[in-house]
Design a protein around this nucleic acid. Structure first.
Lengths: 203, 203
DNA sequence: TTGAAATTAGACTAAATAGTCAACTATCTA
DNA sequence: TAGATAGTTGACTATTTAGTCTAATTTCAA
């Protein structure tokens, strides 16, 4: 049935690349089309506009990258301290990888774009809030596990998840703005310390 | 000599308001002129373009607001735990005040705008990096004092300043994106906990 | 009070950008 | 292999935006 195409995927990939590197507002539809090697008409065949493309791109990013990333690295198979350390180290490693590939520290696009558009592009903001909520729920669950295993002191898991999320995003954004990976060096230690996790040695 | 005017100040104030609420990219020169009640010709009489206005605005914000804010609230007159607690509480209170005034949680513009423009508006990025460096130096000094007073364990003050800064900015940005002040509620506790500050009770 | 300096006004140009559309092309199925 | 379906093309329009320019206006100081 009909002509086949991966133009939609190419557009999402191009939008992700460009917006992640620069910003939502600075990237035009023409830029995205050029990078994806797709003509204007095809763009509007697939998406009503830039905002809808961005929503699709971020939802895709969650499903194809971030969800699997969390599942792989915030692994319930490990004991709590190693679980969180592994995850935080994976974040740092991922920023290193991206920085090498792209020539600069990129940070987290959900955070950058979220902060940029939260008062003007409401549907995009909501898509980003969704992703944040999902991430926080993963953290919360891991924190609950750690408390249950007596690996950290009791606390409100939702609040602590939020704090951890804030620390990660804060340092990552710093690293982006300063274009300096060194800012992330101690993220794993700081994260564990924030959670008051007893490392195997401490326990 | 010659005609007098406060149009330059009105332009900076308008730019700060608009960009803080929305974003750098979403605000046009026409928007700023309209809000400031200044005509195009006058805009270009004072500034070569939006980027230069933004640089002037952020430098002004540092000198007139943020510097005095830190000096007032991160006060060396207090003992370490109260010093940091007072500062963190002042940040939370300030976000509450702004949210009430403006109808939404605004976060820190240096952080939002910094993350937005760091790969395209290099002079603005540099102005923001300067502000960050200054803030971090204040934190670092306060941390050094706390260590000297035996109120917290020894650590690399620069690194810890960075972590604190990351936590503050991370939670503040979260609060902006979610438009939810509750996210900031535990910032003071989390900050002290990150620093491992002995509260008077603990000491 | 005059003239130089500082500021204002707003119409104008040029460029960038979003979005439209009708004709065209490829692919699958009956 | 016909024709229905899905996707492509690029020229076109309309709008927004940045930035320019000249003439007018206000202020101060000599």
């Amino acid at each position: 049935m009909g002509r086949t195409s991966d133009a939609k995927e190419r557009l999402m990939a191009a939008a992700t690349e460009l917006i992640w590197e620069d910003s939502y507002g600075a990237v035009t539809i023409d830029d995205i089309c050029k990078r994806a090697d797709v003509r204007k008409g095809s763009f509007y065949y697939f998406f009503p506009g830039k905002a809808e493309l961005a929503v699709a791109a971020i939802e895709d990013l969650w499903v194809r990258e971030w969800q699997p990333f969390i599942a792989r690295h915030l692994s319930p198979e490990l004991e709590p301290a190693e679980r969180f350390r592994g995850y935080l180290e994976a974040i740092v490693a991922q920023q290193h990888r991206l920085a090498e590939q792209r020539g600069k520290v990129l940070g987290c696009p959900a955070c950058s774009v979220g902060s940029e558009v939260c008062n003007s592009q409401l549907e995009l903001r909501d898509a980003i809030r969704e992703v944040f909520a999902k991430k926080r729920r993963y953290y919360e669950s891991a924190i609950r596990d750690a408390i249950a295993a007596n690996a950290m002191p009791a606390c409100d898991p939702a609040e602590m998840a939020n704090a951890l999320f804030g620390l990660i995003n804060g340092l990552t954004t710093q690293a982006r703005i300063m274009n300096d990976l060194a800012i992330l060096k101690h993220l794993p230690d700081l994260g564990l310390s924030l959670l008051k996790l007893k490392t195997p040695a401490t326990a």
